[in-house]
Design a protein around this nucleic acid. Structure first.
Lengths: 194, 194
DNA sequence: ACTGTTGGCCAACGCTCGTTGACCTCGTGG
DNA sequence: CCACGAGGTCAACGAGCGTTGGCCAACAGT
């Protein structure tokens, strides 16, 4: 892509280019095929290099997955949005994230069949979604339950729309989804315990 | 299919026993490992027989999966339950079905990474869930959207609780889940378009 | 008693996978 | 000019997979 000689002597013979090419190809393959069927050989072929380079750079297949799928949900800072709009905002945010690239699809596809993938999803849930909910509900148990409910609806959306591709779920446009799911998330996160 | 002897001294040299042993083992393995990692060899080992027997009985791995995971959601006949309680009833019903055996977990795990598995889920959606919703909403587009929304929440629950095993989702007891998700399903299925 | 059918095992095939180690090729620093 | 190290290729390994075909043992019908 880019030439090679910036200003400095460093970065010489294009390793960075190859590294990101590998990661891009890996993300795509993991998203399309899941962990087992996304073979290192296929990823290397997509990236236009030899399979052994993948091993050199990322150690083994697990390391490659860890490097390729390092999800940051980019959730808004707690308090950054009004409490009574958080449901709609979260749904819209997640829709944008899902369609950004295949990273979330890859994570979900792998998480469904691979132990390490599932563990990574738990980690993301705990480190990224839970803190936002905790800001609203200091009681830890309350927060955990409400965050889990929110996750169930948000992941269910991703599952039906981007993984299983149920036709009616694919056909909906974003506004409509936000209008339907927003109130659900709002209730899970802010309503009184039923 | 089954030629043999209906009237005669049946059950002789135990083929039926083996067949169901294979199906049980297959269901468990597919539920635990997904399609690729649930190997015919492992399934045969669990069933206490030779891998080649699996081939004899079910043709190939796809045939085995088809035979092992033939989901019947056992949804109530349309009109069998009051329209204003259908949300709670559906959630409770699905919880029971998920915990019955590993069949739904197997279906979801395989559906997330396997084309045929995803197609089977679409088929079940269309043939089993959609008709129930159609009974309430004659307009086909309305019915499809509402059924997809319901599926997203129900599958999201199954995903977080039985596949990913997010701790807070596992810790919830059934009544609490019904109390939280019931109103959601109720709204997706019966409320006015938002 | 003979024979065909049925349930089952064993051994092998061809293939693909992740992974490894030897080798090649240059641009650069001394 | 030369050595070196980084970027990259090639060929092979051992293992595991789905699948096949041949063989064996025991029952059932004649």
């Amino acid at each position: 892509m880019t030439r090679s000689k910036p200003p400095a002597p460093a970065a010489s013979r294009r390793s960075a280019t190859t590294r990101t090419a590998i990661l891009d190809a890996a993300r795509e393959r993991f998203a399309a095929d899941g962990y087992e069927r996304a073979t290192i050989r296929a990823i290397a072929r997509d990236a236009g290099i030899d399979p052994s380079m993948v091993m050199r750079y990322y150690g083994n297949k697990e390391g490659l997955f860890a490097a390729a799928v390092a999800v940051d949900l980019e959730l808004p800072a707690p308090g950054a949005l009004p409490r009574e709009r958080i449901g709609h905002a979260l749904v819209a945010h997640f829709l944008r994230m899902w369609e950004d690239d295949g990273e979330l699809t890859a994570l979900l596809r792998v998480g469904a069949t691979n132990e390490a993938g599932a563990a990574r999803m738990q980690h993301i849930f705990q480190e990224q979604l839970l803190p936002v909910v905790r800001e609203m509900h200091p009681d830890p148990e309350q927060a955990a339950v409400r965050a889990a409910l929110a996750a169930s609806q948000l992941l269910g959306l991703g599952l039906t729309r981007y993984v299983l591709r149920l036709p009616p779920a694919v056909a909906l446009d974003r506004e409509e989804i936000v209008a339907w799911l927003g109130p659900t998330l709002q209730r899970y996160l802010t309503a009184a315990h039923p």
